[in-house]
Amino acid sequence: MTTPQPLLEIRNLEKRFELDRGFLETLKFRGGKFVREKRAVHAVNNISLQVAPGEALCVVGESGCGKSTVARLIAGLLNPSAGEIHYDGQRIDNRSRRTLMPLRKKMQMIFQNPYASLNPRMTIQQALEEPVRYHNPSLSRGELRDKVAEVMRAVGVDPSWSSRYPHEFSGGQRQRIAIARALTVDPEFIIADEPISALDVSIQAQVLNLMLEAKDQRGLTYLFITHDLSVVQHFGTKVAVLYLGSVCELSDTATLFENPKHPYTRALLSAVPQLKDDHPNHIRLRGEIPTPINMPKGCPFESRCAHANSRCSAEQPRPIQQPDGSLVACHAVEEERLDG
């Protein structure tokens, strides 16, 4: 099997958020003496991923499992606690903001809330012009105007509305404009953090179509974060399932939906309400979700897993390559004690 050189590669990425900042906050009285104890949120734990050019990697998982943190680390909005991020063969996690400038143009981020991506005090013309001018300072006013009009048409928004402000547009239009803004600088890579979650079904389709078009026509590469598995199945070429900051399964989209292996992936797929199925067969998860502050020693999913045993509570499972190419981090899968 020949794997193309990945556009993005993450190696052993970690992110901890310290909870106690001050020195006094960290002092705890234990066993008759003061000890210094720092608590931290373990948001991302030892994640390794690769995204090849033209691929759409979808990241799924429960709220708080670290999806947005991964996105923000890649976009350079957060610094990792450990690990490496490589883009197009270059390491990018340890570089200054200034040396990353040329890269900013290649990598664009779209947020869940279209308000977060658009400045409410800028007209659409200004919002769309800004990144173009920034990255191409030599363009004339006329050329700028043409470029903006072209981009607006491409996302189905009438260019004659360019002097309007974001609040004058519907949620779907705003999100399409935010995507248009990301596309103005001809990026190679788009990080989209739940770009359609806040939108209605009919509007979701409009935005998803736009992103699909950009993928097909411009060969864009995506890291797409969502919690909607039907969107994953439609849009993703690969899927990473996260649980408490760790990857539990990484697979081709088709393989994942046909043959999910990790117990959490199976529970997740079974929980999706189906349109036409009268007898859903949902796998009930019992037990409490641990917080990323008190990370369990063994498998992060152990407290809710029906297949857990003593090894699971003692030892954290490593991702292991399966015959069909997927990576699965589960002792039971490794020991072949799960059916199917």
Partner: peptide, 8 residues
């Protein structure tokens, strides 16, 4: 809520 919790 998340899908697994929603289903519950």
């Amino acid at each position: 809520l998340d899908v697994t919790i929603q289903a519950d």
